[in-house]
Amino acid sequence: MAEHSKSIPVQHIIGFVLSIVLTLLAAWAALGSNLPVKWIIAGILTLAVIQAGIQLFMFMHMTESESRNGHVPWNMMFHGFVLAAIIVAGSLFTMSWGFDHHPGKDDMGTHQEEEQQHGGH
């Protein structure tokens, strides 16, 4: 109820400022910095997860007690994100990277190299 009666939505403003800062940080990391590509990817994905958390907890009232939903929303959202990770990482694991384990033995290895070249433009 505390937030409910406040006239200035402090939480929202903090969340908004944070999300702008994080977006700019990610853009800088990707476009302005000279970090190695793998680091950039890992870094900006982490920033994205933090931003998603800001939306969920500061904007979407996921944990507010008035809802009387108990643990259900965050439980389902948590599993949703776990599943998202399984689907994306699992697909890459089986469909893209899974062929790496016998490079050079057949044409799979060269195919992989081609793919990397395509991405490198």
């Binding site: 599943l83 399984i86 699992g90 694991f93 089986t94 899974g98 062929f99 384990h101 016998h102 799979m108």
Partner: peptide, 18 residues
Amino acid sequence: SFLVWVHHFFTMGAGAFV
């Protein structure tokens, strides 16, 4: 049940590790 789907296409040719 969400972690086993590849067993339907073991013969696709993914690596031994997968």
